[in-house]
Design a protein around this nucleic acid. Sequence first.
DNA 1: TTTATTGCTTTTATATTGCAAGTAAAATTA
DNA 2: TAATTTTACTTGCAATATAAAAGCAATAAA
Lengths: 144, 144
Amino acid sequence: MSTEFRCSCPITSAIDMIGDKWSLVVIKNMLLYNLKTFKDLSETNEKIATNILASRLKALEAKGFITKTKPANNKKTNIYLLTDKGLSLIPIIIELAIWGDTNLNEIHTSLNRDNPIEYIKLNKEKFVGVFKDQYLEKVKAAAV
Amino acid sequence: MSTEFRCSCPITSAIDMIGDKWSLVVIKNMLLYNLKTFKDLSETNEKIATNILASRLKALEAKGFITKTKPANNKKTNIYLLTDKGLSLIPIIIELAIWGDTNLNEIHTSLNRDNPIEYIKLNKEKFVGVFKDQYLEKVKAAAV
DNA sequence: TTTATTGCTTTTATATTGCAAGTAAAATTA
DNA sequence: TAATTTTACTTGCAATATAAAAGCAATAAA
């Protein structure tokens, strides 16, 4: 499943890389809810089919956005973690969050406000770093 | 072709709205290259099929991102223009541009550098406004 | 009046996605 | 130790989306 690029435009190429229906959703769930296993990621609100999740995780690993490792004490469960390249998508995810939050309230009866998006809006640049650090900290804490 | 939302997450919902393969590409070409007609939009580097372009323009109009008007002096050609809602996608497009520019240089032999992306990076917030004003000015100038 | 262009639609083909079921290995329970 | 459950997938098939090509009506230009 190699990425085909439609042309040399960086915007179109970015969409070719991560603009499918599921890739950013999987990465968002890893980032915001610290989900790490196949099971965790298959049980989210989006209700991704297991075959799609499997293919997406494989593609994301091949593209360098996530790593797949089996911990020493557990030979069954794979742990999926975001790489630096995966974390580099945070600004895009933040803009999608802000856009969705400001534009979809009328369409949705109730938007999920688990995350303090209004607060994020006040200082976007800062929150790119905050989300990144938060994620890396949780990964580190869980590794102990 | 009504949008189905997978869940109430604003990020996932934003992807449900504009996360298909073509919508943001069409909007980008309207915004950056000031393309306004069916023919213009069908002749871009991305080589969109005409049936896909027609269905995407219809969907974007239904969702309020663009308007379709026939000018008084020309009964043949339709003019497609971005609305304020369409322009509200600029921050997302900018982040995609920055990400693509910084991450895809190794993959592409040559990325299209028509747009001064390095310069944009220095002051993102400013350029959201710059792109918007630039677009509206061109639209205004063409209307004279 | 012929010819070309625009803005599509239709048709056919291919690719992607979704759903249900199955499988194999590891872990848990009896 | 055997049976059961859990995890992480894979497989098959139907449904949907996308692509390529051709067709067509309504202007507009020659």
